[in-house]
Computed example of a mutant assay.
Amino acid sequence: MKIAVIGGTGLIGSQVVKILNTRGHEAIPHSPSTGLDLLSRKGLPEALAGADVVVNLTNSPTFDEASPAFFQTSMDNLLTDAAAAGVGHAVVLSIVGADQVPDLVYYRAKVLQENILKAGPIPYSIVRATQFFEFVDAALSWTADESTVRLPTTLVQPIAAADVAHAVADVSAGAPLRGTRNVAGPEVFALDELGRITLAARGDDRTVVTDNSAGMFAAASGDALIAKDGAAIAKTTYREWLAR
């Protein structure tokens, strides 16, 4: 199959392209660095020409109030041009629990993206993943200073980006789900506990201070970000990933 991977040079996209090509598909990466602009549609018809599947792994440049407009415009453009090109399957990567955290505008924007896809003209699949191992350091940096890192006790179930990429590749090469597949890591942590594990592994002597108002994930309560029954559980543990 010919598969257009939009956002195909990023953390997940570059791995998806490699996996699909190794399996014998023709996966082609498209991104601003290859001349594609989803918002203006520059390069989009060309990227979709002859594609059987389009995988959308693009992300809003910001997590703020501008993110809904980004997903509205980018999805409208993508679906319009994909339908014109005769693409038979559209895949989007989203977030486990996105609909359970309405106080986060970025999560509302991801739900909007999903809903546009569901209402669109192309058979679709949604892959929802939990937070990536690779983003833990960024989450720590949001509320850190020279001596402390403030983190809430929010429950998270992080997953390796490589495992997410395999899940996206599997769905992209299959028949449209016309629904959602959830993927998650094998372990649940309180975010402050995850911070302590991470700092210790890095040899970082800063102290983690539990603060349930700190950072973006403070807006999530209970098990909002935890995969529910029926999710695919990846094998890579956080400590295994850290050790690599």
Rank of each mutant, 00 (worst) to 15 (best):
L93T: 08
S94E: 08
S94T: 12
A98M: 05
D103A: 15
D103M: 11
L104S: 11
Y107L: 09
R108D: 05
A109T: 13
A109E: 10
V111F: 15
E114C: 13
E114W: 14
N115S: 12
I116Q: 13
I116F: 14
L117M: 15
K118C: 06
A119C: 06
G120T: 07
G120L: 05
I122A: 09
P123C: 14
Y124H: 14
S125E: 13
I126E: 05
V127N: 03
V127P: 05
R128A: 05
A129K: 06
A129G: 10
T130A: 02
F132E: 13
E134V: 09
E134G: 09
E134Y: 07
E134Q: 13
F135G: 02
D137R: 14
A138K: 07
L140F: 03
W142E: 14
A144G: 04
E146Q: 15
V149F: 10
V149E: 03
R150D: 01
R150Q: 02
L151E: 12
P152M: 09
T153M: 07
T154R: 01
T154F: 01
P158K: 08
I159L: 04
A160S: 08
A161W: 11
A161H: 10
A162V: 09
D163N: 00
V164R: 01
A165D: 01
H166K: 14
V168G: 10
V168D: 08
D170F: 09
D170Q: 05
V171L: 11
V171Q: 02
S172P: 04
S172V: 04
S172Y: 06
S172N: 03
P176G: 08
R178A: 14
R178D: 15
G179F: 00
T180D: 08
T180L: 12
T180A: 10
R181T: 10
N182T: 04
V183A: 01
V183K: 00
A184V: 08
A184H: 09
G185N: 08
